[in-house]
Design a protein around this nucleic acid. Structure first.
Lengths: 232, 232
DNA sequence: GTAAAAATGTGAAGTACTTCACACCCAGAA
DNA sequence: TTCTGGGTGTGAAGTACTTCACATTTTTAC
């Protein structure tokens, strides 16, 4: 594993493995679950990357997060009677996933307060990130959305290089746009502007950020710790 | 209490009252806490209404939620070492608030799994709402932001009338705009358009929605249950 | 009741973003 | 090699939203 800037996750969330129903292998391009399907399970990522998105009525896509090792997904329907997944989960790489029954985790959390505590901690972090993302997307327009997405990507998948930080994740303009609620063209335009200014460069669909400070300054980034500000 | 459409809250969250450090009276216009202050407590609302907002560097305000009876606020710093409040909480009415020490709740949740379970349930609902709000604010532009805010207000503070649903909460254009990340003028323009079409009417800063279906249709509302879609 | 303050209404000009249209570039398949 | 398709680059036109400026109405304070 490359030396990313990613914050170390709680070791304890792995404890959920003990109550896993089964471990599955899922290939790149497959959906782990899709919006509207019956939801009875949640997933602990052992390896691989999963993109969580919402598809709109008119066919657009809003990407919300990318999960990797020790992340949980499919959690939105926990503790409700809601029977359907609200989002879709697409495998970006081949991966190994632990499947946990909804009733199982609800029960275990009740019995095992240490596990419950870990779970609350995870939710708490997760929630804070989502809340903070809000500000950037709503208050600073599409530029704010893109810039803050770049910062989050850096926190999650950034690898330090001599000339800056490489976001070690291949991304098309369209995919990046999906995270920002913006069009491919607007994303392209904004990225080229950053290239022209020497703030970033792109090679083989991977972005290197040469001047993170510039990007942060433009959106009044408060330099939250990475646990508050990551793409997951 | 008027017969609002507000979903009934879990009775159990009131259990937190038992570990309250003290009960305080706070007057309208006072801040319960402000961004950047040292955070060591969280708050259970017994009565009154509290608006939770984020202030930006350039002085704009983004309002996130309005808490009332049995809501929790100040929860964002739980389970972290983060020492400062991330948001501000303004009293919209006089109210009575139970103050709970952060360490106290962290400890109690660990000891008392029933309480922990209730708390997770609350967080889970809370998170889902925030996540769902995202879509509307990011994907459907400012109109989407306003329309979805109106729907949320209806779910939280709507009172059924012969001619529609009254949102029983006085709101200026500016305040409504703060929830949508939009300007007073844009809010005013959008509201007037809705008035002209007979979809809403406004009297003494309170909005009555005559044709909720029109608003829902415009933003492809999926008619989520109110626990998924409220201003709190 | 009157003055002051707060909130609303509106239009014109400017900026941000989207849509559409199409050229281009490059990697992989035939 | 050429063909093909997915992704990129770009400009023109249109739409959405903001900013500014100011008139009017409503609410609050004395």
């Amino acid at each position: 594993m490359p030396n990313t800037l990613k914050p170390t996750k709680s070791i304890e969330i792995k404890e959920l493995l003990h109550i896993a129903d089964r471990i599955i292998q899922v290939e790149k391009g497959q959906y782990l679950f899709q919006e509207g399907q019956d939801a009875g399970e949640l997933y602990l990522v052992i390896s691989g990357k999963i993109q969580i998105s919402k598809i709109t009525a008119d066919g657009r896509e809003l990407s919300l997060r990318i999960c990797s090792e020790n992340d949980i997904c499919g959690e939105l329907t926990l503790f409700t009677n809601s029977p359907k997944y609200l989002l879709s989960a697409l495998m970006l790489e081949d991966g190994e996933i632990a499947v946990i029954k909804k009733e199982m985790i609800e029960e275990k959390i009740f019995q095992d307060s240490a596990l419950g505590f870990e779970f609350i901690k995870w939710m708490s972090d997760h929630f804070r990130k989502t809340q903070m993302k809000f500000r950037d997307l709503v208050l600073y327009g599409k530029k704010g959305a893109l810039y803050s997405t770049l910062i989050r990507m850096t926190n999650s998948y950034g690898v330090e290089q001599e000339d800056g930080i490489l976001i070690d994740l291949p991304l098309t303009n369209q995919e990046l746009g999906n995270f920002c609620g913006t069009t491919r063209e607007s994303t392209n335009h904004l990225l080229n502007e950053l290239k022209r200014k020497g703030v970033i460069s792109i090679e083989k669909k991977k972005i290197t950020i040469h001047d993170l400070q510039y990007i942060k300054k433009e959106i009044d980034c408060e330099n939250c710790p990475a646990v508050f500000c990551s793409i997951e």
